[in-house]
Design a protein around this nucleic acid. Structure first.
Lengths: 352, 352
DNA sequence: GCTAGCACTCTACTTAATGGAGTGCTAATT
DNA sequence: AATTAGCACTCCATTAAGTAGAGTGCTAGC
């Protein structure tokens, strides 16, 4: 497969390009006649048919039945986006809309929602944005409240204003005021450090320094360990515009839509897919079966990771039918990711 | 319309009943021949046709075209559920499944999700549960953290362990320690009171007693007022099994499903519908256009409010096509509401 | 190596024909 | 007066057949 490009001369590539473009805009199998007119090559339909036969042998295009035109296969799309695509610059109107809506706001979570909605509305497909990872976020405040049966409600704030809470089971019964002291103690030591740092510091304390701590300190550390040991909500996303997918005839095969929507609500497969994009930076594209999930064999996913302070913290993207306007979607997703990253940049807290 | 029942003799009602039952189980328009066999009345098809004509005049049934059988109209279903329905007791297996899954758990929010999923899975339709209203919940802890530009992050805990947070804009710049004091002060006075009570107490303080308070107290009260003035997340719900609706042919008219799903993600219409059920207690049913929303003219909504401590705090229910097995759904929704209410009952906090 | 031409294939659409289900009406029956 | 049998009629669903159009593959000639 890697030598596809080598096997093909410029003319074939040119024809493949126009074919894909034509199919993306029309949604109909493209025949030799229309290709002959569309391409600037001045070739007769018969010649084009020969080329098409070659492309079909290479698995780049495919014919739904004997007397229909050709449509691109996943490999065809892949070759197209990798080597043939002419990206279109972003529409000015859309660009200003992005800028306007993705300027730093109070609430980060709110902004994630805005980004997702923008992705969906502008592309008329489904928009998806993962919540920013909180490993690289810093601890701002922590607090414990007693519940019944040695359960403790822990509330902690990260960054500017993200509030998390979970219930932990403590080893022994601690009173409200003991818990309060523990909170105060932890705040005094760990405030301002990253969660990762806190996590490892806590572990170290527990392993090494137990002797020189008093009981209260030890309790506090143990609680902290419990509070931060698992990273619960690390994997969630905001998905909008799913219903836009209902408009696409290629996805409307009875079960198809249901399966896609089921995948959306189960979340885990999607998460897994998005995770793959975390590693790469820049735009990533999964075309059809490339995603590895049968449900999405008719879909493409265009993603980009987004970064705060030069560290990748999340992924956003767009899900739609394989037949999508890649030349517009790709730069659009790219820009959106950059703007979101910038908008999420920790604001400098002006001390009052 | 109110005198429908009066206009009809037992025989007509009996026939309507069998017609609805038959249509619910088959999904096909019911003709006079099959009705004649189904009903125990031993009437000839011809007679039944006459009765049908009467029912049609009354708007209880309707014929899709001249030579088809009859299907119930919304009014027909309404009469059916109001006066003709023989409710079926709950399946034992389902009942024990409910009991097993809806016993008191740690996390109330988690339980809401479980309830929603149960509703969806057992009925094979969409399940919906509103989050419990927090008016009648009591304040457990409140805390303020400074943000930039006079913005303050307020975190408060209600009941056992529900954590809420929002950003408010304070009148003047307050330091972290001032904010902490304000929190401590408010905790000392208002802890354990209901949010409603706190809200009105705060208002009263502001109107009446300003002179005898010192500045710090006044600041604290003002913050509390801001924190509680609006009731933001009061309206939200957990919806599951939406995709089950994709299976029903009566909803599959192209745009139809899309509109329904759009309504689901906009939430507000649904909320409004559910709100109506808050007032009544016991099971409520909206059939087709009765909901008042065109989108749901092919759907029915069976709801029940659920109560904690004898106070209605939320609504749950099931959304499906008008053609649903009311005789099973109704008792099922009823029981689920009761079990959820019971499971949410505030646990007695054992002081450590 | 390219192209014109032709036979062939397959789809999509229209039209017609057929059978079945069910109705409404009327006249006969109880 | 209520019920029923019978009949003509309507409408749908399905099948079959025919047609036009689009597009291909192949071959022979340029």
């Amino acid at each position: 497969m890697a030598n596809n490009t080598l096997d093909l001369n410029d003319r074939s590539l040119q024809l493949l390009k126009t074919l894909v473009e034509r199919y993306i805009s029309d949604g109909q199998p493209v025949g030799s006649r229309s290709l002959s007119k569309d391409s600037a090559l001045n070739l007769s339909p018969a010649t084009i048919r020969n080329v098409m036969a070659d492309l079909e042998d290479l698995g780049l295009v495919h014919s739904p039945h004997t007397s229909a035109g050709r449509i691109p296969t996943s490999s065809g799309y892949r070759l197209f986006v990798d080597s043939l695509l002419t990206v279109k610059p972003l529409d000015n109107q859309e660009l200003s809309r992005l800028h306007h809506n993705l300027s730093a706001k109070d609430d980060d979570n709110q902004m994630i929602g805005v980004a997702s909605r923008l992705l969906a509305e502008i592309t008329q497909m489904a928009g998806i944005v993962t919540l920013p990872r909180r490993e690289l976020t810093c601890l701002r405040h922590i607090e414990f409240l007693p519940l019944s049966h040695q359960r403790v409600l822990v509330i902690f704030v990260t960054n500017e204003q993200e509030v998390h809470n979970k219930v932990i089971y403590s080893e022994k019964n601690l009173s409200a005021s003991e818990l309060q002291q523990a909170g105060a103690y932890l705040n005094s030591i760990y405030c301002g450090q990253s969660l990762d740092a806190v996590r490892s510091a806590v572990l170290k304390e527990l392993q090494v320094d137990q002797e020189r701590m008093n009981q209260a300190m030890l309790d506090a550390i143990k609680m902290a360990q419990l509070a931060f040991e698992t990273d619960d909500n690390k994997d969630d996303y905001v998905l909008t515009g799913e219903t836009n997918l209902m408009g696409f005839s290629e996805l409307s095969g009875r079960n198809h839509l249901k399966q896609i929507f089921d995948a959306f609500s189960q979340k885990q497969d999607i998460i897994h897919l998005l995770d793959q994009s975390m590693k790469a930076d820049g735009v990533q594209i999964f075309i059809g079966e490339e995603s590895g999930y049968q449900v999405f064999e008719q879909c493409s996913l265009v993603t980009s990771s987004y970064s705060v302070n030069n560290e990748v913290v999340g992924v956003l993207g767009v899900i739609g039918p394989t037949r999508m306007a890649y030349e517009k979607i790709i730069p659009f997703v790219d820009v959106t990711a950059k703007l979101l990253g910038a908008a999420l940049n920790p604001k400098t807290t002006t001390p009052s």
